[in-house]
């Protein structure tokens, strides 16, 4: 079994698909970090031009906000929950002032998280699809499936080894995404920013976003959380891709089907508020990171747990279907 998995990993590596994915990532990460750097610089320039040549002084602004907050939290009429969330903001701002960091400067830590937040619905699933789509279908189109299945190994073991290899490579891919986006964006921004405190843990109370139970964690911890969610999403996408790859005997159709599902799912989200059923579609639930940031529009009945359960159900179902289909499939090549 282990040697089968080892063999599958070598197949993936020798196909040089990882190289293609890393190249794609490199290109996009560099473009995005350059774009962010550029737009940051122009914003500062515009601000300075508008305010009549006065240098942009973030410290004065931040200190004003800080004083303002401190004064407000003295106010005895403020409810306890509001005061707690104010204290957290004060802590956060204090960090920026003490460490002489402009809160809006782009840093490598911010970029890696943003990259996941933007990419988790489409870009990163597409990379997984590139990795996984021809896993089984390629054996059909190259007719190597005959050789594979004539060995004295049960079919399910063959598929399981493929799946394990896929999980391993997906895990490594998520790691590569984090490393590449951190390193490349550091080259542009020259700031790590991993120790910066960040607020998370927003909750939904009666359909409204509630910040009373938020907690303050460092950006490094936050990054780990975000990437763990990305890893889960990637595993789910990999499982669904495996199913398509087993059913369709042609790699390019497999990629096509998955791309259509991913992009079409984005459009379906427009109907989310009216059409109940859309909420159970896997694409609608891919954006797990938004539940941690507190900047999303809550949709009735959707929470992190709901999305995780729905995605898990999709993954388990696809695995069942893939194994059932693969076991009974007629090999006519």
């Amino acid at each position: 079994m282990i040697s089968l998995t080892q063999n599958e990993i070598l197949k993936i590596l020798l196909k040089k698909k990882m190289l293609l994915i890393v190249l794609l990532l490199l290109i996009f990460v560099s473009l995005l970090s350059y774009g962010q750097k550029y737009s940051y610089d122009t914003t500062i320039q515009k601000f300075e031009a508008e305010s009549g040549g006065i240098a942009y002084d973030w410290k004065a602004l931040t200190t004003q906000r800080l004083n303002d907050l401190e004064e407000r939290s003295q106010n005895e009429f403020i409810p306890e929950e509001v005061r707690a969330s104010m204290d957290r903001e004060i802590q956060q701002l204090n960090y920026f002032v003490e460490n002489d960091i402009n809160p809006i400067t782009p840093t490598a830590a911010k970029f890696t998280v943003q990259f996941v937040e933007q990419g988790i619905t489409l870009f990163i699933p597409l990379l997984i699809v590139i990795l996984a789509a021809d896993l089984v279908s390629n054996e059909f189109s190259k007719k190597t499936i005959k050789i594979l299945l004539t060995r004295a190994v049960p079919r399910w073991k063959v598929l399981l080894s493929k799946y394990s290899a896929l999980i391993i490579m997906t895990t490594i891919l998520v790691f590569i995404v984090s490393i590449l986006s951190t390193l490349v964006s550091y080259l542009f921004f020259q700031q790590w920013g991993f120790s910066e405190p960040i607020v998370t843990g927003f909750t939904l109370i009666e359909g409204e976003l509630n910040s009373s139970s938020t907690i303050l964690i460092s950006r490094f911890q936050y990054t780990v959380l975000i990437y763990s969610l990305l890893w889960f999403v990637s595993i789910v996408i990999a499982s669904i891709t495996l199913m398509i790859s087993v059913i369709v005997e042609n790699s390019s159709s497999a990629i096509g089907i998955l791309m259509a599902a991913l992009i079409g799912g984005q459009f379906l989200q427009f109907f989310l508020s009216e059409w109940e059923l859309v909420k159970y579609f896997f694409v609608t639930n891919l954006d797990l990171t938004r539940y941690l940031t507190g900047s999303y529009q809550p949709i009735e009945g959707m929470s992190l747990n709901f999305s995780i359960l729905t995605l898990s159900a999709w993954a388990v179902l696809s695995l069942i279907v893939s194994f059932a289909v693969f076991n009974r499939k007629d090999i006519l090549v």
């Binding site: 909750t203 959380l225 941690l292 992190l304």
Partner: peptide, 17 residues
């Protein structure tokens, strides 16, 4: 690492609920 992070993020958003 990812599994523990995953569990942590569920705990973070679930405990308050």
């Amino acid at each position: 690492v990812f599994i523990s992070g995953f569990i942590a993020s569920i705990v973070v958003s679930k405990s308050e609920e």
